[in-house]
Design a protein around this nucleic acid. Structure first.
Length: 429
RNA sequence: GGAGAGGUGGCAGAGUGGUCGAAUGCGCGUCUUUGCUAAAGACGUGACCGGUCAAAAGCUGGUCCACGGGUUCGAAUCCCGUCCUCUCCGCCA
């Protein structure tokens, strides 16, 4: 979330930003209301502070009271003050709660260079080093390739868990492991701390990271009779792990890699391009997360993007990089780049499909999570910036890999960097 | 899962109803002594929300002793719930 005080003092700027992001008119009106709510909060806070001071003085005087009558009189006075305070606290809590609802619904500010507009306004800013493939045969999509080589069992997935789940089989398993090993290798070399993370997290952690468990339109699976949910991405746990932490300045920037399963209900996503691996309820992802000082976050964002490019260039997968338009940014993102890989089997004659996403969330997540750093000699603490990026989302990357590397004879070549981990250089029948 | 112990400032650790944001030690900062280092001494050393101020500093009010509730004029201290840690037992990959 944004800073409460800053929002109250910069209402016009905040509204302008929301307009740029295509937020509904109703939210803009709410933001205008926020400023007066916050003024109420401050006024009430002043009153309560004053009463607290009085009540404290009264309480302390009781021990030194000269007589029983005086003591009783003071007690009554103290009781009366506390009642006033309680009443005001009820009011201020309501005001704060109303303000918080608004504050939490306000998205992050937007990078001035991010393209303005909706989904279609995103701008291609870069291409990968691998050219689009040319086939002298009709390329298959990954589902057909999977059938040919017995790589996936969607029926078994449906049987045990329902539509959107699958079993990987045979060479697909080796490939999954090889891809993870490949990604981890590159991230380790880039100075990331390697972790595997819990696949479940408390609802409070989800909320702190900006996810909404248990709403009517939630994308999150939750566990009945507990406060746990299945994570949609390791971003939740990697950010959540540092909740309320204060870094020393020399610990930053900190780069962490987390491998987790990701679970998404994909509510309302039926009927879209969901064949095969593209949109499933569970997949494995190698995620990057970074904590930086504010002035370092843009450079870190560029680094995360570079790593994503390096990973896909290394796999020989053609892709384009999109600078995501303001209207299509998620709430916490100040700026976001997506990699879209070329998927020859997608649509009529191939199409781009999103495979990674990297966001600079500036201090939007860290404010709610209370993640700060301290500079020696300087007073106070400063909120860190958080960034996240996909290293490899296994399912989607595998679609691109299988479809781009298929050969006329039906076999699939394994990109060189994976061969050692995979133990073979080709998938054949 | 069962039984017990416990969660206090950057760390260690005292504090069982008021004068406690909290002793003491370590660490850290400034200064003094010293040719440098070491050592010693003096002083200082948290976060958050407000007020004052153009702003910062400063000054000033409040809140914070895991978290949330309760009792009380008053809670780090008493009661309840939650979370977490440790020890033992059970179970288990």
């Amino acid at each position: 979330m944004l800073d409460r005080r800053w929002v109250a003092d910069h209402t016009e700027e905040v509204i302008e930003n929301c307009r740029r992001r295509g937020m509904p008119e109703s939210l803009l009106e709410e933001i205008a209301r926020f400023s007066s709510l916050d003024a109420d909060r401050r006024r009430l806070k002043g009153e309560i502070d004053g009463l607290n001071q009085q009540a404290g003085l009264v309480s302390r005087s009781i021990g030194k009271a000269a007589s029983d009558e005086e003591r009783e009189a003071r007690k009554a006075e103290g009781r009366q003050l506390r009642e006033q305070i309680s009443a005001l606290e009820v009011t201020i809590n309501e005001v704060v709660a109303a303000g918080d609802v608004i504050l939490r619904s306000i998205p992050n500010l937007t990078h001035p260079d991010a393209p303005a507009g909706g989904e279609d306004a995103s701008v291609e800013v870069r291409r990968g080093s691998t050219p689009l493939p040319t086939f002298d045969f009709k390329p298959l999509d990954h589902v057909s390739l999977g059938e040919k080589h017995d790589l996936f069992d969607f029926e078994a997935g449906s049987k045990v868990a329902g539509h959107g789940f699958l079993f990987s089989k045979n060479d697909a398993v080796l490939l999954e492991l090889a891809m993870q090993r490949y990604a981890v290798e590159i991230l380790a070399r880039r100075g990331f701390t390697l972790t595997t993370t819990p696949d479940l997290a408390r609802d409070s952690i989800l909320e702190g990271t900006g996810f909404m468990p248990r709403g009517p339109e939630t994308q999150i699976y939750s566990i009945t009779d507990s406060d746990l949910s299945l994570v949609a991405t390791a971003e939740i746990t990697l950010g959540g792990a540092m909740q309320d932490h204060v870094f020393d300045a020399d610990e930053l920037p900190l780069k962490i890699c987390g491998i987790s399963h990701c679970f998404r209900t994909e509510a309302g996503a039926h009927g879209r391009a969901t064949r095969g691996l593209y949109r499933v309820h569970q997949f494995t992802k190698v995620e990057m997360f970074a904590f930086t000082k504010p002035e370092e976050s843009e450079a870190m964002h560029a680094e995360l993007l570079d790593i994503e490019c390096e990973l896909f260039d290394g796999l020989g997968i053609p892709y384009r990089v999109l600078d995501i338009a303001s209207g299509d940014l998620g709430g916490p993102a100040y700026r976001k780049y997506d990699l879209e890989a070329w998927m020859p089997g997608r649509g009529e004659a191939g199409d781009w499909g999103e495979v990674t996403s990297t966001s600079n969330c500036t201090d939007y997540q860290s404010r709610r999570l209370g993640i700060r750093f301290r500079t020696p000699g300087a007073k106070g603490t400063t909120l860190v910036h958080t960034l996240n990026g996909t290293a490899l989302a296994i399912g989607r990357a595998m679609i691109a890999l299988l479809e781009n590397h298929q050969q006329a004879d039906g076999s699939i070549t394994i990109p060189q960097p994976l061969v050692a981990w995979m133990g073979k250089d080709r998938i054949t029948t």
